[in-house]
């Protein structure tokens, strides 16, 4: 049985980032290539958000598991840096999902991240920009910690990178 790339991508919607379970790998932007070979074998190309991201091995086996559930038996998942992930690759749907989850989405950038874009991040709780960066390191490699002066909440941001 042959599959189309669209089908594979659709099924991969079920695979979520284990550290941010509202975000699919598609929306996170870490699926960098899908190819269906003539013999029916499926090849999925992935790249990690951070080089040291411990979630990549989980994501890799989740991809295989979900595709197997849909009857795709032969799956090869290749993790490489052929395409280097950056936070602009998070989809609009993904950015909204982050916000709903209580994590500020990363601001879009021109691939040169300067400290000033980490200041005055929009608070995901009340929408205020009257906020302050507390530390560029958080509970996972991809998050920074901020404080909102208006609603007084401390919140996290998915770091622009």
């Amino acid at each position: 049985m042959a599959y189309t790339e669209e089908e594979i991508r659709h099924w991969l919607e079920e695979v979520k980032d284990p550290e941010i379970p509202v975000l699919s790998l598609n929306d996170l932007g870490v699926i960098t290539g899908i190819s269906v070979l003539e013999n029916g074998k499926v090849k999925v190309e992935m790249t990690p958000t951070f080089v040291g991201c411990p979630a990549i091995d989980y994501m890799k086996s989740d991809v295989k598991e979900v595709l197997a559930k849909h009857g795709v038996e032969e799956v090869e998942v290749r993790v490489s840096f052929d395409t280097q992930w950056n936070s602009n690759m998070i989809s609009e749907k993904g950015r909204q999902a982050l916000k709903d989850f209580g994590l500020a989405p990363p601001p879009k950038h021109n691939l040169i991240v300067e400290l000033d874009i980490l200041e005055e991040v929009e608070c995901p709780n009340c929408g205020s920009h009257n906020t302050d960066l507390k530390t560029p390191f958080g509970p996972t490699l991809c998050r920074s910690i901020h404080h909102c002066f208006d609603c007084k909440e401390t919140f996290e941001q998915f770091k622009p990178i």
Binding site: F50, V51, C53, T135, P136, F137, P139, L141
Partner: peptide
């Protein structure tokens, strides 16, 4: 606490980069 997290995060980054 923030510095504890910062050095731990940088450790995780660097060890991950060494692996790559």
């Amino acid at each position: 606490l923030e510095e504890d997290i910062a050095f731990s995060s940088m450790a995780q980054d660097k060890i991950g980069q060494s692996q790559a």
